[in-house]
C-alpha cells in the first residue's frame, strides 16, 4: 500500500497520478492523503519511480477531473484514480460514455455540484464600491463570498471578462481573487471582517427586489430550491424575504376586494386615431 500525500489541488493529484500510472500501481494499492502533514511522515513516491510510459487519456476526462478536484469530498482522489486506471490500464476506453457506471456517475455528480457552486458564485457575489483610483478614475469594488467547494480559481475568469473595466477583489475563506485591469491574481483566504458590509446602492436594490415580487404568485419552495438559505447571509435583499411572504396574503385579498374600474374612453390623440384607421382598412 502506498500513501500518497498531495496538495488538495488538481495539478498535485495529476502529477502523482501520472507517476503511479506509469509505474503500474493499481488503485487498490493507493491511499491518497491531502491533509496538511509533517514532512517525512509518509513513505514517499521514490519507491514507485516511473517505470513505463504514461498512457494517454482524453481531454474529457481531464476536464471532469479538474472540476471534481474542486469538490470537498475526501474520496474524490481515489475515485478519480480508479476511473483513470480503468480508462487506461483496465481496458475500459469507453467508460466515460457509461453514465450508469457507479464511479462515472459519482464523478459526474461531484462535477455537477462544483459546476452549480460556480454558477451560484457568479450569481450571488455582491460587489461593494470602496474607492475610486484618483489617478486612473477606475472604481474599486470588493466582495465577500463563501463557496461550498474550492472553486475560486475556476470561477474567477468569468469576473475578469465581465468586469474588466473596474478593479475588484473577491474575498473568500479559501482563496481570494483580484483584478486590477491588467492581471488576475490569487492570494490566500481571509476572514469575513476583511470585506465591507454595505453599499450605498443596497437600498435601491432592495426597493427593486420588493417591487418586482408579485404577491399573487407566492412560491416559496421554488425560490428556496434555486436560492438556498445558506447563501442568504451575504445577500442584501434576503432580509426582506420573511416580510414579503407574510404580507402577501393581505395584499392579494385587497386586490380581489378592490372594486373593478370600467374602461375609460380613448383620449383625443392623433396616433390612436391612426391606429383605428389602420385596423379598419
Amino acid at each position: 500500500m502506498h500513501t500518497v500525500p498531495i496538495q488538495p489541488v488538481f495539478e498535485s493529484w495529476r502529477d502523482r497520478a501520472r507517476e503511479l500510472l506509469a509505474s503500474g500501481v493499481p488503485p487498490e494499492e493507493v491511499l491518497w492523503s491531502d491533509e496538511p502533514q509533517a514532512p517525512g511522515l509518509f513513505a514517499t513516491l521514490e519507491e514507485v519511480a516511473p517505470r513505463g510510459a504514461v498512457p494517454k487519456v482524453s481531454p474529457v476526462f481531464l476536464d471532469l477531473a479538474r472540476s471534481v478536484a474542486a469538490h470537498r469530498d475526501g474520496r474524490r482522489w481515489s475515485v478519480l484514480y480508479r476511473v483513470l486506471w480503468r480508462l487506461t490500464r483496465g481496458g475500459e476506453r469507453h467508460l466515460l460514455a457509461v453514465a450508469t457506471d457507479g464511479d462515472v456517475r459519482q464523478l459526474q455528480q461531484w462535477a455537477k455540484a462544483v459546476g452549480r457552486d460556480i454558477h451560484k458564485m457568479h450569481a450571488f457575489v455582491r460587489f461593494r464600491l470602496v474607492a475610486q483610483d484618483e489617478a486612473t478614475g477606475r472604481e474599486q469594488f470588493v466582495a465577500w463570498f463563501e463557496p461550498e467547494h474550492r472553486i475560486v480559481l475556476l470561477a474567477a475568469g468569468f469576473f475578469e471578462r465581465r468586469f474588466a473595466g473596474m478593479d475588484w477583489s473577491i474575498l473568500t475563506p479559501d482563496d481570494c481573487a483580484h483584478w486590477d485591469g491588467v492581471t488576475l491574481h490569487f492570494t490566500p483566504g481571509v476572514p469575513r471582517r476583511a470585506a465591507p458590509d454595505e453599499d450605498a446602492l443596497d437600498d435601491l436594490w432592495r426597493t427593486y427586489y420588493r417591487s418586482i415580487f408579485n404577491p399573487a404568485r407566492l412560491k416559496v419552495s421554488a425560490m428556496q430550491s434555486e436560492m438556498p438559505k445558506k447563501y442568504w447571509k451575504n445577500l442584501p435583499e434576503a432580509p426582506l424575504i420573511a416580510d414579503l411572504i407574510a404580507g402577501s396574503g393581505g395584499r392579494v385579498e385587497k386586490m380581489l376586494r378592490t372594486e373593478a374600474s370600467a374602461p375609460r374612453p380613448a383620449p383625443k390623440n392623433r396616433y390612436l386615431d391612426s391606429l383605428r384607421d389602420r385596423t379598419a382598412s
Binding site: 457568479h122 450569481a123 473596474m166 427586489y209 412560491k219 425560490m223
Partner: peptide, 23 residues
C-alpha cells in the same frame, strides 16, 4: 469587456442573480 472601456459580458446560459418569493 476585456480590452474595452466599460463592463459587461454575455453568452452562454443566463444567470439568475436572485429569486423573489414568487419563485
Amino acid at each position: 469587456s476585456r480590452g474595452g472601456k466599460g463592463v459587461g459580458s454575455t453568452g452562454g446560459a443566463g444567470i439568475c442573480h436572485s429569486y423573489a418569493p414568487d419563485g
